[in-house]
Design a protein around this nucleic acid. Structure first.
Length: 371
DNA sequence: AACGCGGGGAT
DNA sequence: ATCCCAGCGTT
């Protein structure tokens, strides 16, 4: 360890000793508390997590208690925290801990890493914080602090950068002080070396911070922005049933894999570009809807433009033009298709944009009927 | 390597 | 109202 590294570790630990926050999971040394708190803290701020953590621990005080709980009770305790697969994975892992490790979180990095929901960061956090093992725990805070202090220009959005920074972080751990050191690193990122306006003048390691000395503290860490979602114009068919399907709407189920797997939706198709400018005339759009219905084996035809709707995913933005269509017969439905009425919407899982579209349609129909 | 997964705070 | 935050599992 060179002088700059030794300085960093020494001063950071000294600072942490006086500035650490008193958090519920820091009272005592319970590996289960560390584990639960680290899962909750993924993508979630400390202030939000505290009340959830207190309630969760009082309901499920041990890994075995969590393993024995009903999943719906666990999800209920997680309600509002978001990313609910964290809760399912946490309980699945608790069941494995109960079965394979007699209900005790194993003091073994390979065993901890193999548990559901525990990736490289969380494994390092548990091993270091709970068991004081010399494992790095590199989260976004740590990448920011170390990128600035050592003036690393690697793109922290790349997975390979986390691996590189883990090597840097591992080398900095003062032997026998992994628990406090790793927590100190994250605490500094949360309290002082913040993303937008770091409080460099209050920082215990500012004298040797290469990023600040180079005037780059606001430039670092380098992080490529996610590319903006690619717009996709789509034409959707709002098919109104006839005869015994009067007042009902035609929906279809998405494929088993990929985007929105097994969710229900209105039938729609990616727009084919009609002009050099990429725009599409009303007639051409209706033709494409007619072609969609034909291809899908649906005996119906477009009537008129109904509305526009937009939905943004991480990489795609759907710009949907919805065409009202009318069924021309009480045809047999192709596989994966169904007619739906207002009262039965709760039985089908729809992405939000279709919930809005379909509910909007039914409400409009009802107000028409009510005069 | 790209993508999906919620909610909250900052602006 | 819009931007930003960010670890893990799946594909």
């Amino acid at each position: 360890m060179d002088e700059q590294q030794a300085f960093f570790s020494r001063e950071l630990l000294r600072w942490y000793h006086e500035n650490r926050r008193d958090l519920p999971w820091r009272r005592g040394h319970n590996p289960y508390y560390t584990w639960v708190s680290e899962i909750m803290l993924q993508q979630t701020r400390v202030d939000t997590v505290i009340p959830y953590f207190e309630r969760f621990i009082s309901k499920f005080p041990t890994a075995t208690a969590l393993a024995d709980a009903k999943e719906e009770d666990v999800l209920k305790a997680w309600e509002g925290l978001g990313y609910y697969s964290r809760a399912r994975n946490l309980q699945a892992a608790a069941r494995e801990v109960k079965e394979r490790y007699a209900g005790e979180v194993p003091d073994d990095v390979a065993a901890v890493s193999s548990l559901k929901g525990i990736g490289p960061y969380t494994a390092g956090a548990i091993m270091s914080i709970a068991f004081n093992r010399n494992e790095p725990a590199v989260d976004g805070n740590v990448m920011r602090v170390l990128s600035r202090f050592f003036r690393l220009h690697d793109d922290i959005a790349k997975p390979s950068t986390r691996v590189k920074i883990e090597k840097v972080a591992r080398a900095l751990i003062p032997d026998g002080h992994a628990s406090h050191f790793n927590q100190a690193l994250m605490e500094l990122g949360a309290l002082t070396c913040t993303p937008k306006s770091p409080s460099c003048l209050l920082c215990p390691v500012m004298e040797h911070c290469e990023g600040r000395l180079a005037g780059e503290e606001l430039l670092l860490p380098i992080k490529t922005k996610a590319k903006p979602p690619k717009p996709e114009v789509r034409f959707a068919a709002l098919v109104e049933g006839m005869g015994r399907h009067e007042g009902q709407l035609l929906i279809r189920k998405r494929p088993d894999t990929g985007l929105l797997a097994r969710m229900w939706e209105l039938p729609h198709v990616l727009a084919q570009k009609q002009t050099s400018k990429g725009s599409t005339t009303q007639e051409a759009a209706m033709d494409q809807v007619r072609e969609l219905l034909f291809q899908e084996g649906i005996h119906a035809e477009p009537v008129e433009a109904y509305c526009d709707a937009e939905h943004t995913f991480s990489h795609i933005q759907w710009q949907m033009r919805v065409y009202r269509c009318k069924a021309l017969s009480e045809m047999a439905l192709p596989p994966g298709y169904a007619y739906i009425e207002r009262e039965h919407m709760a039985e089908y899982a729809f992405p939000n944009l279709f919930v809005k579209l379909i509910q909007g349609y039914f409400e409009e129909q009802q107000s028409v009927r009510n005069g």
